[in-house]
Nucleic acid binder design. Sequence first.
DNA 1: ATTCATGCAAATCGTTTGCAACCCA
DNA 2: TGGGTTGCAAACGATTTGCATGAAT
Lengths: 150, 150
Amino acid sequence: MADRMEDFRNQLKEKGYKLTMQRQAVLNSIIEHEGEHLSTEEIYELVKKNHPEIGLATVYRTLLLLDRMELVYKLDLDDGCSRYELNKDNEDHRHHHLICTECGSVEEVQEDLLESLEEQILQKNGFIIKDHRVKFYGCCKKCIELLRKP
Amino acid sequence: MADRMEDFRNQLKEKGYKLTMQRQAVLNSIIEHEGEHLSTEEIYELVKKNHPEIGLATVYRTLLLLDRMELVYKLDLDDGCSRYELNKDNEDHRHHHLICTECGSVEEVQEDLLESLEEQILQKNGFIIKDHRVKFYGCCKKCIELLRKP
DNA sequence: ATTCATGCAAATCGTTTGCAACCCA
DNA sequence: TGGGTTGCAAACGATTTGCATGAAT
């Protein structure tokens, strides 16, 4: 569901902000690359194809906005820059990432499966968990196969 | 159990490196503040008390070394700088952090409790997990109590 | 004596900010 | 029209690096 651009426009309007061509272009680039984890620089390069005049600072400012409006999700894949993915609006809990330390690939795990752990933490620490960030490091299927037959 | 300094000296010797006074001072500061999550700058300030001549770059270089030797563990608590904690040598899996979004406190959860999830991921994705990093965001016990009776 | 480590300053890199010109509502 | 937005360049803050000096083995 959800026309994301409509959502963006409405959230902007609510706050008295404007839907500019640059903002549309940034969101569009991310939508067109759903499933990827684009860095700010990569998004900048994508947007420049159709809008060569755009400034990097505008991309940074727009991503901040999109993050705050929860239209995108900022992630840290340990490569020294921020990366973004489209927010799946049906997610109540953040999905996990599997990072292959051999080839650097990143997969997603939609399952949450942390409920019982979170319940235990509530019992033991009295800490109410509202969100989590989980990264798994290891070896992906492809790399396991490559390592098996050399 | 481990005299950590001895461990450090041995690992250095193995690689032909030297145990300098600065390196000892950095590791000592972290040992003396076990349980905390010191930033590089904080460690720098601590070391300067006894060794005012030390340079910040040396602290950075030493922390890199300690991290590679797995004597300390680098963590990202979302405040824009790297933080370090002593590596508990009995841990096979990294412990989790509970970050309170109200007061900013950070607790640790020693329990792992991710085995069944990791097993499921192996079955489903064929991904072998070797390590993980888990951060939980929420509200700590103290803040819950404070919010209850205003 | 050799080789590695240090302190300092300069360089780097991602990100943020100040500001005059600009443009959406 | 007017206030938010942009592009540019300068500023920033954490971290890294080059280099001559200094210290550990």
